Amino acid sequence: MSLDSTDRRILEVLQRQGRISNADLSERVNLSASACHRRVQRLEAEGYIKDYVALLDARKLSVPTTVFVEITLQGQADELLDAFERAVARIPDVLECHLMAGSADYILKVVAENTDDFARIHRQHLTRLPGVAQMQSSFALRTVFKTTALPV
């Protein structure tokens, strides 16, 4: 299915206001409530809308420190990559893990209370990941820009 301009407007609004009522959404995208509801259901069924979530405030949850960790593995065998990916997915402090092309094999986005807490995460979890040859951590000083909205 290809997206038309109305589908794109629906996706733009829902990315920024996931709790908007169908009545308000239909008004914003200039559709009847029933037509808007059908389109949203179709966008969900076809996988354009994966889920609805609440975005939480990391500071209020006492994890304001963001650390990006570059990891190089000892090799590239499928078994090693699979073992690493299964293990890293079990670490609750890791928000994202990306397989990379470039100098590192993976980049992780980790949240922590502070540097001491990151030291604990590093010692208890990251150093125990299978196949790690090298690790480099970079602390974010300030988040300049952050969004979850994809360009549609």
Rank of each mutant, 00 (worst) to 15 (best):
R16S: 11
R16D: 03
L31E: 04
S21C: 15
R42V: 13
Y48S: 11
V29G: 05
Q41F: 10
V13G: 00
V13N: 00
R39L: 07
Q15D: 03
S26P: 01
R39D: 00
E12V: 06
G47I: 14
A35S: 05
E27S: 15
A35H: 03
Q15G: 08
G47S: 12
V40P: 07
Y48T: 08
R19S: 12
Y48F: 15
L25A: 09
E44N: 09
R38Y: 12
S21H: 14
Y48I: 14
S34W: 11
L14G: 02
E46N: 14
Q15R: 01
S26R: 04
D24K: 09
I49W: 09
N30P: 08
A45M: 13
R42I: 11
A35W: 02
L43P: 03
I49S: 00
S34M: 12
R39T: 03
R16A: 13
L43M: 05
R38G: 06
R28Q: 04
N30M: 13
R19C: 09
E44T: 05
D24Y: 11
S21N: 02
R42E: 04
A33E: 06
N22A: 15
E44R: 13
L31Y: 00
Q15T: 06
D24H: 07
A23T: 14
R19F: 06
C36N: 03
R38K: 13
V13P: 00
N22P: 10
V29H: 02
E44G: 05
Q15V: 07
I20H: 01
R16H: 08
R42Q: 07
Y48G: 07
A45T: 05
Q15P: 02
R19K: 07
R28F: 11
R39W: 05
E27P: 06
L31I: 09
A33F: 05
R38H: 04
N30R: 15
R42L: 12
R19H: 10
A23V: 10
L14Q: 01
V29I: 13
L43A: 08
Y48H: 14
G18F: 12
Q41D: 09
Q41R: 13
V29L: 11
D24A: 14
S34E: 11
S26L: 06
L14N: 00
V40M: 06
E12N: 11
N22W: 15
A23I: 12
Q17G: 05
Q15M: 06
D24N: 12
S32E: 08
A35Q: 06
Y48E: 09
N22V: 14
E46Y: 09
C36Q: 02
Q17A: 10
I49T: 10
S26I: 07
Q41L: 15
D24T: 08
R16M: 09
R16C: 02
V29S: 02
A23Y: 10
N30D: 11
E44F: 10
V40W: 01
E46L: 14
I20L: 12
C36P: 02
E12A: 15
R28P: 04
C36E: 01
R42N: 03
D24F: 13
